[in-house]
Design a protein around this nucleic acid. Structure first.
Lengths: 152, 152
DNA sequence: ATATAATAGTTACGCATGAAACTAATAATC
DNA sequence: GATTATTAGTTTCATGCGTAACTATTATAT
């Protein structure tokens, strides 16, 4: 490895830029830059627990709790106690939450479009592949992604 | 673009993991995970201004101020008013600061090694290239990196 | 030269985040 | 069945960060 900063620097820069961009774009909807990702998981599979959301998004359960609380307060989702496990909640989208999908996707797409605007289609594919391959290494050795982890 | 989350998700995950890892590894030295990068710039070019540090690292000048203050308090660097411009400081490494280079490099290397442990040498090169190409797009259109921006 | 702009740095405020300590409910063990 | 351990969720505390408002210099304009 020549200079690890060549990897970490750009990643930090991209992350912070994405956060700032999404915060600005979603400000009018009162959806924070750290919250919209939770909605995306629910678009794929409604009714999961906060713990599952945390695992899928690779954040702490503290972060999951805060994001869900905020989105619930703004009316994008609601929670119901799990019938079979009274510790857990099941998190569901409201109509308002479902309607946000297009908006968020549009904003996020426009950010990524800018980011990859000089990439050839092949480079985009490779980049997507490699960034995923790298992030996989960060999970705990015995990590098993929940069954609803795929965004397909 | 199929799913922009395939780009943003992993980047966020890597960034947060790097922050947590470096915080833990550098805790004993009382160097924060958001501070060691400033030392690296100084290793390459000692005596630059806080504003230059901010530009080079693509952070706000508020962040630059805070990092420099913390590193000064811990004795890793010191500041002198610029003779020709009494608004600006020139930031210099102390002996203690210079001695940290090896330590930080080692930690950061071990993080990146884990991250890229499944990459072939070619993939590492490509990844480095593409991540840089992407981050370049985030600077303001007229952005001109300071002359001391290269880490070579 | 004087009024106005821009620049370097600082500070206050708010957001996103993880670790750790905590509560309540369930599972495991004996 | 009672004790113990695990799990879901919450809260507290600390860190990193950007924006915007502020001060103090320097540069520009008139």
């Amino acid at each position: 490895m020549e200079d690890p900063r060549e990897i970490c620097g750009p990643i930090a820069h991209i992350y912070r830029s994405q956060l700032a961009y999404m915060a600005k774009e979603l400000e009018a909807y009162r959806v924070g830059s750290g919250q919209f990702e939770f909605l995306f998981v629910l678009y794929h599979r409604d009714g999961v627990s906060q713990e599952s959301l945390a695992k899928i998004l690779a954040v702490s359960k503290a972060t999951s709790t805060r994001a869900i609380q905020s989105l619930e307060k703004e009316g994008y989702l609601y929670r119901q106690r799990d019938e079979n496990d009274h510790r857990a909640y099941r998190v569901y989208l409201t109509e308002k939450g479902k309607e946000m999908r297009g908006v968020i996707l549009e904003k996020l797409n426009s950010f990524v479009d800018t980011l990859l605007s000089d990439f050839t289609p092949e480079e985009k594919t490779i980049f997507r592949l490699l960034i995923h391959k790298a992030s996989i290494k960060l999970f705990d050795p015995g990590f098993e992604p929940p069954s609803d982890c795929r965004m397909t």
